[in-house]
Design a protein around this nucleic acid. Structure first.
Length: 462
DNA sequence: TCCTAGAGGCTCATCAACAG
DNA sequence: CTGTTGATGAGCCTCTAGGA
């Protein structure tokens, strides 16, 4: 086994005798592998760090020795770093091959243009305005025009076509005689500024963001219901969630309201809730239920979906709204089947238990939307026959979570029932579940099972 | 064909505290 | 584990030429 110090020693020897403009960390790693006859794939990060360290110390040494061309050293060093950070295709952690594939796929088949990002219109510096002949332009257009100019004037260095030999207009722009094509983008950014026109909205958004930053997540004060304000008795009408929880627990402990016999999270919350004048009073409840009730008092405006469980029309309305909303969502738009069967699952009373083993998801659509319904994970072309309140569209919720254990279906149903509130964990559970479910398309299912896929979208009316 | 550099904005998953 | 919301960081988007 080779020690780290041996590796470092050999690495530094190699770097001292290498052309740092052409050497990459991958080359260094392969050289070391060759020298020591071992696989160093798991040492990529270590090697990169050591290379960076080497470059840094070399640079410091150069400055200390008082080279009269510090600026040049700096610039060259910049190039070195640039090159040394390049891993010639190897991902940093060495385990991103799939990710790379994905990246390739997405970049090749997506050519959509959005108003934001690089397509956003920007204002140009006076120097760039002089060069381009326009006051505003998208970054990508500027790059295009710049390259047109380079080609028209044959400004690429013949010995290394990645280097651009600056003519007078480019010198005025970049202030150097030659520039690397990659560095050119960096230099260009100094001449491309965000537009000032939408300052008002941008500024307020920035201000909002800045303010929010100070009081994040659980630390952000939230409005309390009148009942909760009265219960706390301090006159505070807004508190961070964690503070509310803390004070409630203080109260429970002080008044000995916990039910010691039942153990777990059970407690006599009834007293607390009566004090809060919460509409729904239960004699006993567990921690999760109590949290939900508390949440209702911290967000009085939250819609209580549980009241409408018996009223299918409410769900129908909700789901139609969701469908309209999700249709516009980019991920959903890619699929022909769209979300829509939450109520059917709720009302089907799990009559399809016998079918669960046939659940055949084709692909998962992840819809993230902060609202009453958020974090849906859905599967198109499932084979779970559902009672359909709508004729179309049909998309099967991925409820495969515990389908290997039918006894747990009731709890799944409960989770779906509270979907509007218990969204995050629902999402997580589905994600976990989707790893375990059979992956077959409808056609594949038909071939395998030899019968029509029971999950074919139903076209009948409710 | 894919990767490399660089820019800013957008989407999405994950994490934070709190209780038993 | 159970729920809550906002911050955060990763990854993708566009464009270019050269090299593997």
């Amino acid at each position: 086994m080779v020690s780290d110090s041996e590796l470092i020693g050999r690495l530094r020897d190699f770097l001292r005798n290498s052309d740092l403009n052409t050497t990459t960390t991958a080359i260094v790693r392969r050289k070391l592998e060759e020298d020591f006859g071992i696989d160093l794939s798991d040492k990529k990060r270590f090697i990169r760090e050591q290379v960076d360290l080497f470059l840094q110390t070399e640079h410091e040494k150069a400055v200390e020795e008082g080279y009269g061309h510090c600026e040049e050293v700096e610039q060259e060093d910049g190039d070195e770093n640039l090159k040394m950070e390049t891993e010639d295709g190897d991902s940093e952690d060495g385990d991103n091959d799939d990710e790379d594939d994905e990246k390739g796929k997405t970049s090749s088949d997506k050519a959509k243009k959005r108003g934001g990002g690089f397509s956003k219109l920007c204002s140009l510096s006076p120097q760039l305005q002089e060069f381009i002949g326009a006051t505003e332009m998208a970054r990508t257009e500027v790059v295009k025009q710049l390259w047109n100019h380079i080609r028209e004037n044959n400004l690429q260095d013949p010995s290394n076509r990645r280097n651009i030999l600056c003519d007078e207009p480019l010198k005025a722009l970049f202030g150097v005689n030659s520039i690397n094509m990659f560095q050119m983008n960096k230099a260009l950014s100094k001449h491309i500024w965000p537009l000032e026109s939408n300052d008002d909205s941008d500024d307020s958004a920035r201000e909002d963001k800045r303010q929010k930053k100070g009081k994040s997540g659980f630390l952000a004060p939230l409005p309390l219901s009148d009942a909760l304000v009265a219960f706390l008795g301090t006159g505070e009408d807004a508190l961070p969630r964690s503070d509310v929880v803390k004070r409630m627990w203080d109260y429970i402990k002080q008044n000995n309201l916990q039910n010691g016999k039942s153990g777990g999270g059970n407690m006599r919350v009834d007293v607390v809730l009566l004090l809060c004048k919460v509409a729904k009073v239960k004699t006993k409840s567990n921690l999760c239920w109590w949290n939900k009730e508390l949440f209702r008092n911290i967000h009085p405006q939250m819609v209580d979906l549980s009241n409408s469980i018996d009223d299918l029309s409410n769900y129908k309305m909700d789901c139609e709204e969701i469908y309209e909303e999700t249709k516009a969502y980019k991920n959903v738009a890619k699929t022909e089947e769209v979300l829509g069967s939450l109520p059917s699952l709720l009302t089907s009373d799990c009559a399809h238990r016998n079918e669960v083993k046939h659940l055949v998801p084709k692909h998962t659509v992840n819809i993230q939307h902060r609202g009453i319904f958020a974090y849906f994970t859905c599967v198109a072309y499932g084979v779970l026959p559902l009672v359909q309140p709508f004729s179309n569209p049909i998309l099967y919720l991925d409820v495969a979570l515990d389908f290997q254990q039918p006894t747990k279906i009731e709890s799944i149903k409960t989770r779906l029932f509270f979907m509007g509130v218990y969204t995050l964990s629902f999402h997580k559970n589905l994600k976990r579940a989707s790893d375990n479910i059979l992956s077959l398309s409808t056609q594949e299912y038909q071939m395998k099972v030899g019968s029509e896929c029971p999950g074919q979208p139903l076209r009948s009316s409710p």
